[in-house]
Amino acid sequence: MLTKRIIPCLDIKDGRTVKGINFKDLADAGDPVELAERYAREGADELVFLDISATEEKRRTLAELVYHVAEKVNIPFTVGGGISSVEDVGMLLRAGADKISVNSAAVKRPELINELASRFGSQCVVVAIDAKNVDGKWLVHLVGGKVATEVDLFEWALEVQERGAGEILFTSMDHDGTKNGFANEALSKLSDMLHIPVIASGGAGTKEHFKDTFKEGKADAALAASVFHYGEIPIPELKTYLKNEQIPIRI
């Protein structure tokens, strides 16, 4: 049976992980390769690296990082953050990334999704969508959720599927950072209307939240950052809990 995926997300700046990490036995807590290896050993099903560097030069640092991650890590990983062209994607895939995620650039120029899918295949194109509930309407936001658009989450999700996305990574800006649980109502609606997998993001605080997003939110995968980085929820413990809750999970 296909299992639900647990995906730790690492924020990267200038080739280093940004958020503090409390893993004591890491020689260098800021080294994304060591952290990635550790998550893979602990049973993470995939990894996401989100680059928050801004300049071209730093992007090349990102490709180098991807190369070093691929060298050491034997599970799939996605790279995202500021990707806006076929060239960006080609460079990251050649360096060893399995998938890439696009966000703002796809909203600004939706044809990018078609170009990436036809050039590299839908299986490696994840479209990340940040949205916020504004007066009862889920609106897509850009630039890490800072800039509002008039684009409706559900219409946009259908469009990106149509254009060839292989997967959708949905982050609720209302839930992100709250640790109060995922946006399960919107997730469930997305999952029902789409025929591509949906990754839930934003709001993880407890093990129950993961169970809820798989059961109520019908998510295919769940992504989180701080609960893993700060060791609040160890991955092996989370996966054992979910398995006991009758959720298909790889242990």
């Binding site: 296909l2 995926r5 299986q123 292989g166 789409l194 591509i196 997998p197 295919d220």
Partner: peptide, 8 residues
């Protein structure tokens, strides 16, 4: 759901 993505 297609593609099938993940561990089976």
């Amino acid at each position: 759901k297609v593609p099938q993505i993940g561990w089976n």
